[in-house]
Amino acid sequence: MAKRNVRRSAAPGPVGPCPCGSAEAYEDCCGALHQGRSVAATAEALMRSRFSAYAVSDTAYLLRTWHTSTLPPRLTLDPGQRWTRLEILDTERGGMFDTVGVVEFRAHYRQAGRPGDVRERSRFARQDGQWVYLDAA
Rank of each mutant, 00 (worst) to 15 (best):
A2W: 09
K3Y: 13
N5K: 14
V6Y: 14
R8V: 15
S9P: 08
S9L: 12
A10C: 02
A11V: 06
P12V: 13
P12N: 10
P12A: 11
P12F: 06
G13S: 07
P14G: 12
V15G: 13
G16N: 10
C18Q: 07
S22P: 15
A25D: 15
A25M: 05
E27R: 00
C30G: 08
C30V: 04
C30E: 13
C30Y: 04
C30P: 11
C30K: 02
L33I: 02
Q35G: 08
T42C: 05
A43R: 08
E44G: 06
L46Q: 07
L46N: 06
L46W: 00
S49F: 03
R50Q: 04
F51T: 03
F51G: 07
S52H: 06
S52C: 05
S52D: 08
A53H: 13
Y54A: 11
Y54V: 05
A55L: 07
V56C: 09
V56Q: 11
V56L: 06
S57G: 11
S57H: 15
S57I: 02
Y61C: 09
L63R: 09
L63H: 10
R64G: 13
T65D: 09
T65I: 04
W66F: 12
T68S: 11
T68F: 02
T70H: 08
P72D: 07
P73K: 13
L75M: 15
L75F: 14
L77P: 00
L77H: 12
P79N: 07
R82W: 06
R82F: 11
W83R: 03
W83T: 03
D90K: 13
E92Q: 15
G94D: 05
G94F: 00
G94I: 03
F97G: 07
D98K: 03
G101E: 12
G101Q: 12
V102C: 10
V102M: 01
V103M: 01
R110I: 03
P115R: 12
V118F: 02
V118H: 08
R119A: 15
E120Y: 00
E120A: 06
E120N: 02
R121C: 14
S122P: 09
S122L: 00
A125P: 04
Q127T: 11
D128H: 03
G129M: 05
Q130V: 03
W131Q: 11
V132L: 01
V132S: 05
A137M: 00
